[in-house]
């Protein structure tokens, strides 16, 4: 998915559009392609289910994780670390997982000038046609405008990440292809790809001939879904 994208890739979208899961996938994809990678968790809104939850996986894979100092702790303080400033101005691949909506994107605004100075970024707008209040293209566009204003950056592509969590079928994803295209077209942005859980990606490809389907692994899981995999 990262082919042709700039060194700094920023992932934005509505709450629950699946940004964190996509960010983790992109970081791993880039690392496995041999790049030096940084995954930055810039989410100052969400207390749980965030990139910082994957510190062990990132360490194992040799990916540097940069997260707000108190992420995952009991302190509700959105303090960002200075480490990201240095990394933006490096030659490493940086994947930035931003908090939802304009509230989350506000933290990104603080870095916009630095990102532009470092050669700019590709800002992906992740949409999920099954999320309540973003199901119409109009609603999705409104949120994008709010995000861009807060981020002081422009989106460069749309990613269709439509899903119903663990209940997602290939047909569910294909059904929202039109919605994602509509969002992209009305905003004059390219539709980068449709994402699909690995085991149904082939099926989605058959349902959407000629379109780019990127398989993703589901990392963001509930405790009872993880069950006994680590034992």
């Amino acid at each position: 998915m990262l082919e042709g994208l700039k060194r700094i890739v920023v992932i934005t979208g509505h709450y629950g559009s699946g940004k964190t899961n996509l960010a983790v996938n992109l970081a791993l994809e880039s690392r496995r392609a041999g790049e030096e990678v940084v995954l930055a968790d810039l989410d100052i809104v969400n207390p749980y289910f965030r990139s910082a939850d994957f510190s062990e996986l990132m360490e194992m894979e040799g990916i540097e994780l940069v997260a707000p100092i108190y992420a995952g702790s009991n302190l509700d303080i959105p303090a960002l670390t200075a480490r990201l400033d240095a990394l933006l101005d490096s030659d490493r691949r940086v994947i930035i997982d931003v908090g939802g909506d304009d509230a989350g994107a506000a933290a990104l605004g603080r870095y916009s000038a630095m990102i532009e100075a470092a050669g700019g970024c590709d800002m992906l707008y992740v949409v999920n046609g099954y999320r309540y209040l973003t199901r119409s293209a109009g609603e999705a566009e409104e949120i994008l405008e709010e995000i861009e204003r807060a981020a002081r950056l422009r989106a460069s592509a749309v990613v269709n990440n439509s899903n119903l969590a663990g209940e997602t079928t290939a047909q569910d994803i294909a059904d929202k292809a039109g919605f994602a295209k509509q969002v992209a077209e009305s905003y004059h942005l390219p539709l980068l790809c449709h994402t699909a859980q690995e085991d149904i990606a082939e099926e989605v490809k058959m349902l959407l001939p000629g379109e780019t389907v990127c398989p993703v692994r589901i990392y963001v899981k509930k405790l009872w879904e993880k069950a006994f995999e680590s034992h």
């Binding site: 709450y15 629950g16 099954y130 999320r131 309540y132 899903n163 119903l164 969590a165 209940e167």
Partner: peptide, 14 residues
């Protein structure tokens, strides 16, 4: 129609 919601949002919408 089925929609994907966060618990807190679902409480409010309901």
């Amino acid at each position: 129609q089925k929609v994907l919601m966060k618990g807190n949002e679902a409480l409010a919408e309901a």
